[in-house]
Write a protein that binds this DNA or RNA. Sequence first.
DNA 1: AAAGCGGGGCG
DNA 2: CGCCCAGCTTT
Length: 353
Amino acid sequence: MPNNFATRILAWFDHHGRHDLPWQRDISPYRVWVSEIMLQQTQVKTVIPFFDRFMAAFPTVDALAAAPEDEVLHLWTGLGYYARARNLHKAARQVCEQRGGEFPTDVEGLMALPGIGRSTAGAIVSIAQGRRAAILDGNVKRVLARYHAIAGWPGKTAVHNALWDIAEAYTPGERCADYTQGMMDLGATVCTRSSPQCQRCPLVGDCAAHRLGREGDFPGKKPKKTLPVRRTRFLMLRDSDGCAWLEKRPSPGIWGGLWCFPEGEDLDPERWCLDRTGRKPDAVETWPEFRHTFSHYHLEIVPILVELDAKPGWVMEADRQLWYNVRQPPQIGLAAPVADLLEQLARQGQAKE
DNA sequence: AAAGCGGGGCG
DNA sequence: CGCCCAGCTTT
């Protein structure tokens, strides 16, 4: 017999939960896994088109495992947190090579795969495999922190552990998949970060935060700190064919595995061009600086367009350097500001024609 | 423009 | 444990 808490969540889910999300069709561990990885740090509305494109390209874990990493990152371009894509790809290869394409069926086995932690493992076990397992994503954290008025920022180990204990206690053995989906839906649509719709909440009668009139105080805020600012130059070398020079970033690291312009704070475009091509640039144009913000610093980027009237004949390292043809874009992963600048270069090229 | 979101890896 | 990893939405 489910506990009272779970009973209310389930009854609410039946009438008000989301039942038509793309990953709720043709449920499988693979589809739930991909959706859960994409949903880390990213909202449902943003994920849906990426999920659909990803599934069309890689319908099975075998298809994903067989794909080149560049293609996986290409389909992740714009979604962010690219380590998620690299881990997804690595895990797919592990599942295929070491387990014949079968996913582990328990939380511990799933957590051994790169990119899968306790919560994501719980989601796969409960939603895809229909067995009892707890999750604790941002939505569930918010619901539980408010319901029990748990003080403190969940990033602190003590708060985190307390929330996990509660999550485990409420997770029912029956209809665990619906309960898990229901908790996520409740957090996403009713128990929202700002302006929660408490009158529509099945837990309103017992919610400690609501009773105190302090919904906004839970969960506790992350201590804020001012982000440092770093500066860099992007050297956009363009040849006579309109192709741009890109280099693959080392992995791990910022934008690991993605393709980017040569970049550096002290990079001298004239010097760089002369050193690499043996000739001076035919035109140099400094574009307006813009800011790109990471989780831990701001990056002020100055793009510098360096034009060559010829096609340089130097030898490339094919694995990590390429000429990007804006008219026939290769299937590779691009850092968001790089994708943006390439698009501007393409538009500029069109205007000239 | 600034704040908030948020899970997993790693040292 | 604290820090490292983006990019989107909300305010």
